[in-house]
Simulated assay, not measured.
Amino acid sequence: MSSLAQQLQRLAVPQTANLAIHDKERKSLLFDPKEAANFDKETFFSIGINGLEELSSINPVFREFEKSLFNENAQNFQRAVQTKEVNEKLDETITEFLLHLSPYFLLKPAQKALEWLIFR
């Protein structure tokens, strides 16, 4: 198998196939799955940003995630085409965020921030 064929095969993983498909249902913490399917990426991002801003007013440690998980560039980030190292760093960032988030999980802002991560 040629190098190009191998690269294309890696890009054909389910994650990238799902990016182009509008599901009839979508996983969600805040919405019914059928209702969530009607929202676009920008809506979920706005919900997440709103939650992060509210969390940051409660605990400033959440501001550090504005530059990573809740950055404008995060909307177009495609994990499936990233290197192993980039994905490992992302896993570490998500883990750190979730550790900080856990004491606030029952608060609506925490759930709104988590909604963005569930979408992505």
Results as ranks from 00 to 15, higher is better:
21 I>D: 00
110 A>Q: 10
11 L>G: 13
43 T>Q: 06
96 E>A: 15
67 K>T: 13
112 K>D: 11
9 Q>N: 14
25 E>P: 03
86 V>P: 00
74 A>L: 04
95 T>Y: 08
45 F>N: 00
8 L>V: 07
58 I>P: 01
12 A>E: 12
57 S>M: 06
88 E>D: 13
34 K>G: 06
15 Q>C: 11
76 N>H: 11
90 L>C: 01
64 E>V: 08
31 F>L: 13
57 S>K: 14
35 E>V: 12
34 K>N: 09
8 L>Q: 14
81 V>K: 13
17 A>T: 07
75 Q>D: 00
45 F>V: 01
81 V>Y: 05
118 I>E: 02
48 G>D: 01
108 K>T: 10
36 A>Y: 07
37 A>L: 02
77 F>K: 04
1 M>A: 10
3 S>E: 12
74 A>S: 15
44 F>E: 03
50 N>K: 07
45 F>P: 02
25 E>M: 14
52 L>R: 06
18 N>Y: 06
12 A>P: 11
10 R>A: 15
59 N>S: 12
38 N>P: 00
115 E>L: 04
53 E>D: 10
50 N>V: 00
99 L>F: 14
78 Q>G: 02
92 E>L: 09
17 A>G: 04
40 D>R: 02
46 S>K: 09
73 N>V: 11
108 K>Q: 14
78 Q>R: 12
19 L>G: 00
74 A>M: 11
16 T>E: 13
1 M>R: 09
29 L>D: 01
74 A>R: 05
14 P>C: 07
94 I>A: 05
103 P>D: 05
64 E>Y: 02
117 L>E: 05
16 T>Q: 14
66 E>D: 08
1 M>P: 09
70 F>N: 05
117 L>K: 02
119 F>Q: 05
41 K>Q: 08
67 K>E: 14
75 Q>S: 05
101 L>F: 13
66 E>H: 10
56 S>M: 00
80 A>L: 07
